[in-house]
């Protein structure tokens, strides 16, 4: 479903953020990408989201070369991918409800769907009682659960989570990972970057290990090796 074909990204000064990266992700897989800071984990995700353009190589989503998409088709493509970030990236002037509703609005869903789906997805992340709170009135774990709710509300094919537990304590980390696993069980492909050893070891799923822009290991039932 996702295929990176010899993707390299070289910034000025010959710094290679990605160096000849090739891998595939099958539908329904749960893939973790691990590595030190600067190893290229986030760049891989940015490539997939068409936030970065490769210096050489291509990225395919199903059979589309995503970097060949016309600018006006990029928003529609991005709606097929749910994104979760380390720093949550909620819209600060919108309530929890409105943040999630916004993702549905841009996807062109009608008001009836929005008012039935948003409470539903909030129940899924166990935050129905915080529906009308603004992000700065919520804890880190709660914000991240709102972000996940926003990512899944349009039933995307893929969830991309860029160090979603980086700012959270162990209890919240566990909860977030459990939510991601639940989503994966519903047949959504999950792409997770992390450097949390405990998370990787408890998942027991496929792990890609990156070092200096290269994929150095690809383990089917991976452990955190660095």
């Amino acid at each position: 479903m996702i295929h990176f074909d010899k993707v390299s990204k070289i910034y000025s000064g010959n710094v290679a953020a990605l160096d000849d990266v090739t891998f595939s992700v099958a539908p329904g897989e749960f893939v973790s990408i691990v590595g030190h800071s600067g190893a290229g984990k986030s760049t891989v995700l940015k490539m997939l989201l068409v936030e970065e353009w490769p210096t050489s190589g291509s990225v395919f989503f199903e059979s589309t070369d995503v970097h060949a998409l016309h600018a006006r088709d990029i928003p529609a493509y991005r709606r097929r991918i749910g994104v979760v970030f380390q720093d949550f990236r909620l819209l600060p002037h919108k309530t929890a409800y409105e943040n999630i509703a916004f993702a549905m609005e841009v996807a062109g869903r009608d008001d009836a769907e929005i008012s039935s789906d948003v409470p539903e997805v909030l129940r899924l992340v166990d935050l129905k009682d915080k529906m009308w709170n603004f992000p700065d009135e919520l804890s880190g774990g709660e914000r991240q659960r709102i972000a996940i709710a926003r990512a899944i509300v349009n039933q995307p094919d893929v969830i991309v989570a860029d160090e979603p537990t980086g700012n959270l304590d162990p209890k919240n980390t566990k909860e977030i990972i459990e939510i991601l696993q639940r989503i994966n069980e519903l047949n959504t492909t999950v792409l997770l970057t992390t450097h949390n050893k405990g998370v990787i070891d408890s998942l027991g799923k496929r792990v890609l290990t990156m070092e200096r822009g290269k994929i150095v290991r690809d383990d089917k039932k991976g452990r955190y090796v660095l």
């Binding site: 989201l49 936030e51 006006r72 928003p75 529609a76 493509y77 991005r78 709606r79 994104v83 990236r89 909620l90 819209l91 600060p92 002037h93 916004f102 993702a103 609005e105 841009v106 996807a107 926003r150």
Partner: peptide
């Protein structure tokens, strides 16, 4: 600008 980048990542088109 942060907000705008989030909107775009969620898949909002320019007009929106």
């Amino acid at each position: 600008r942060e907000e705008i980048s989030v909107m775009r990542l969620v898949g909002a088109d320019k007009r929106y």
